[in-house]
């Protein structure tokens, strides 16, 4: 009798324990499903660095029909680069485009450094660029797009109350290229490729609980850090190679 009682209590404890483990596993799975996977590939081909008093400007590539870098992403990169103790001098994009109007409009903006050299040869353009104090132009290309979504949530309401049940998920891909041009050396300093994939989930057990990943914000932070390092460190990534 005592033995049977012990076995019964133990099995109940095991069931309760098992339930907790199961709930824990489900919660952990859902939480771990939400997150951002980052990939950044920087490539610097010159040893140019920004000097005191020199400015940079962040411009969006606008000639694509399918996508365009979001204005608030440009603002995010510009503000973040200018922020902090080691902030860089960032020229306003709108002001730069206005001062050099119409040469940086989507249909006329130079696509290569050769075209840039031709543009700077035009009367008055070089003088205007020099007056802005801008040495580096950072061309941002890319956008954040929804690449996949699935699942579903069903909600119902009645006299006794209301509630939802289900699981929805979606993926946003923030993919950007930052190409840096040196207006002094008239060459391309290099490129930084950033791909931030964010998966968000929203489980609903009576109430929906949104666990949202923000890949665009993460891309802004990641790209800003890389750009800062890129513009302030010769050869950017590792010591300068020894020659001879």
């Amino acid at each position: 009798m005592t033995l049977r009682c012990r076995q019964l209590v133990q099995s109940r404890i095991n069931v309760v324990h098992l339930k907790r483990v199961c709930v824990g596993l489900v919660v952990a799975t859902i939480v771990s499903a939400c997150g951002v996977t980052a990939r950044i590939e920087p490539y610097k081909q010159t040893s140019s660095v920004i000097n005191d008093g020199e400015q940079i400007v962040i411009l969006a590539r606008k000639h694509h029909a399918t996508h365009e870098t979001e204005p608030d992403f440009i603002d995010c990169i510009s503000d973040s680069l200018a922020d902090g103790r080691d902030g860089l001098l960032v020229h306003s994009s709108t002001e730069f485009e206005d001062k050099l109007y119409p040469w940086f409009e989507p249909s006329l903006a130079p696509l290569t450094t050769t075209e840039l050299a031709e543009l700077l040869d035009r009367p008055g353009v070089l003088a205007e660029v020099e007056a802005t104090g801008v040495r580096f132009v950072v061309w941002l290309d890319g956008s954040t797009d929804r690449t996949a979504s699935g699942g579903g949530i069903t909600c119902a309401a009645g006299v006794g109350g209301a509630g939802c049940m289900g699981l929805a998920w979606w993926e946003d891909d923030a993919r950007y290229d930052a190409t840096v041009w040196d207006l002094q050396e008239m060459n391309s300093t290099g490129t930084i490729y950033a791909d931030f994939l964010g998966r968000s989930v929203m489980p609903a057990i009576i109430i929906p609980i949104p666990l949202i990943a923000r890949p665009r914000a993460a891309a802004c932070r990641g790209l800003t850090d890389q750009l800062r390092y890129f513009l302030t460190t010769p050869f950017g990534y590792g010591p300068e190679p020894e020659l001879g």
């Binding site: 109007y101 119409p102 409009e105 989507p106 249909s107 006329l108």
Partner: peptide
């Protein structure tokens, strides 16, 4: 943006 493009085309 479209008007600025027109302006760019006219001026150049």
């Amino acid at each position: 943006v479209a008007m600025r493009e027109v302006g760019a085309a006219i001026s150049t």
